[in-house]
Design a protein around this nucleic acid. Structure first.
Length: 506
RNA sequence: GGGCCCGUAGCUCAGUCGGUAGAGCAGCGGCCUUUUAAGCCGUUGGUCGCAGGUUCGAUUCCUGCCGGGCUCACCA
């Protein structure tokens, strides 16, 4: 029990909390309930500002609720800002208006407390729209001190003083980040908006949104190591999905011709500014389409999203202008590579290819297949150059076991990846629907696995069985939603667009 | 996992070439009836991330550990 200790024994933070507990007790003594059940607001802060002219001339009372973000006591009056879901608004409270008792109660409030106020709207001498409080109600007493971020507006510039910047605390205590950093709230609003627009786009084109298993007995659809979990009743291991691709294609077999899912996927790998162990992938499949159709779809969808969410297809990412206005550049993977290194990797022996990789500082081990080496080389020399939206098409068959062979070249597959600002944003292909070729590809993956490639894909017999019933020619698409949000919000790290990014335990 | 950097008051940061620390904001006590980074006067608050080592003495130097950031590697 805290009460049994003197202040001398308390941690300084507990002293601050103790002060607030004392105020809480005083409020209760005054008959104020600090945690009531509801409050009926008539307006939001934004509505009060938008409707200021009508509200102020009619002297109509408004009521609104929010969190106290600043307090400026001024003798027998007090100015304060409260923050609701849409912004901040100043309130002005006078002892001669609310009465002695209410004014004393108000003085027991702290930054961080949540109140409801009722009053009339006016403009202060300095021009700020303000609610003159007639009455107020405590809606929640807060016990823990909030970082106090001050802000000065000079013309159109906002100068922030003592911003709450500690990344660890911001990610661990995102609620605090959201309270004190309005820009962070804006990022996540925009994230939701982006997802809404993508969903709308697909719905309008007749795609069916579906849900597929997160817990899978056989994981597949991507090259990655999975998280393993255990089902007690069945006494069996299950995997958290690394992709939902194989399930969505089963649905195409089943006769749905256009399906999509916003899929939270899990990959048991390292994390950096582009990778979080759990992330959101939008996958979409369209029957009777090939990767050219999917390229057009992707271009339409993402430029449309930019137009809807940003109001333009030109954006700035980390200081560089990116123009998403279609059409986007399309280049062949091996040609792009040849342009950078001066030789078509297919003309090189395994050994020469390995040497080329080494000369670019790449760490290639003996067991690594040609496909993987080409992939790494591409990532190293080409990918960083792809700032403007670019479709890279036609990949080597080895690294794409679920894609259909290229109609003109059996060593390639009909696959594209979309790069923007050096980031891979989308991955798509003409889906492999030949069950026998699919079986051979799985077997090749198994061989890679036996040679130690832990990311090689595993054989999914039921998926083969499904293909044996027949899947129409199909185009499939995966879009990294988190990265798309990074691009649209100009955020440098994936952790800035995931509300609760993965952290080590405190 | 490698490299570099960081961890000092609730928040943002100084500082100590080794002698156990300081500011602003927040808090607390005053004054102030249109302020706005409100102001003015006064004031509380710290096992300087943790554990060892060196030393008469460590927050400062060294080592290890924990947590974080950036980066490379791994990886979509």
């Amino acid at each position: 029990m805290l009460y049994f200790f003197g202040e001398d024994d308390m941690r300084p933070e507990d002293q601050l909390i103790g002060r607030r507990r004392e105020k809480l007790a005083k409020l209760r003594e005054m008959g104020v309930e600090p945690y009531p059940y509801r409050f009926q607001a008539t307006h939001t802060s934004r509505e009060v500002k938008d409707e200021f002219d009508a509200l102020s001339s009619a002297r109509d009372p408004v009521s609104l609720a929010g969190r106290i973000m600043s307090i400026r006591e001024h003798g027998k009056t007090c100015f304060s800002h409260i923050q609701d879901g849409e912004g901040r608004i100043q309130i002005y409270i006078r002892r001669d208006v609310v009465g002695n008792e209410a004014f004393s109660a108000f003085k027991l409030l702290d930054i961080g407390d949540i109140i409801g106020v009722r009053g009339t709207v006016f403009r202060t001498r300095t021009g700020e729209i303000t609610v003159e409080v007639r009455s107020f109600q405590v809606l929640c007493k807060s016990l823990r001190p909030l970082p106090v971020v001050k802000e000065k507006v000079e013309g159109d510039k906002r100068i922030i003083y003592d911003p709450f910047t500690d990344k660890e605390q911001r990610y661990r205590q995102r609620y605090v980040d959201l309270i004190v950093n309005p820009d962070v709230r804006e990022v996540f609003r925009r994230r939701t908006e982006i997802i809404r627009v993508l969903r709308e786009f697909l719905d309008e084109r007749g795609f069916l949104e579906v849900e597929t298993p997160v817990l899978q007995p056989v994981y597949g659809g991507a090259s990655a190591r999975p998280f393993v979990t255990h089902h007690n009743a069945l006494d069996m291991d299950l995997y958290l999905r690394i992709s939902n691709e194989l399930y969505l294609k089963r649905l195409i077999v089943g006769g749905f011709e256009k399906v999509y899912e916003f899929s939270k996927d899990f990959r048991n790998e390292g994390m950096d500014r582009l990778h979080n162990p759990e992330f959101t992938l939008l996958e979409a499949y369209q029957a009777y389409a090939d990767y050219h159709d999917i390229m057009d779809l992707t271009e339409d969808m993402l430029s449309h999203a930019a137009e809807e969410v940003l109001g333009t297809t030109k954006l700035v990412y980390q200081g560089t202008e990116v123009d998403l206005t279609p059409p986007w550049r399309r280049i062949r993977m091996l040609e792009a590579l040849e342009e950078e290194v001066g030789v078509d990797p297919r003309e090189l022996s395994d050994e020469a290819l390995r040497k080329l990789c080494l000369s670019h500082g790449l760490d290639v081990d003996g067991g690594m297949g040609r496909g993987k080496m080409v992939d790494k080389l591409f990532d190293e020399v080409v990918k960083p150059q792809l700032v403007q939206p670019t479709f890279v098409v036609d990949y080597p068959v080895e690294t794409s076991p679920l894609a259909k062979r290229h109609r003109d070249d059996p060593e390639l597959v009909e696959r594209f990846e979309l790069f923007v600002s050096g980031m891979e944003i989308a991955n798509a292909f003409s889906e492999l629907n030949d069950p026998e070729d699919q079986m051979r590809r799985f077997q090749e993956q198994m061989r890679l696995r036996e040679r130690g490639d832990e990311e090689a894909q595993v054989l999914d017999r039921d998926f083969i069985r499904a293909l044996e019933y027949g899947m129409p020619p199909t185009g499939g698409l995966g879009i990294g939603v988190d990265r798309l949000v990074m691009l649209f919000t100009d955020m440098p790290s994936i952790r800035d667009v995931i509300l609760f990014p993965h952290m080590r335990p405190e």
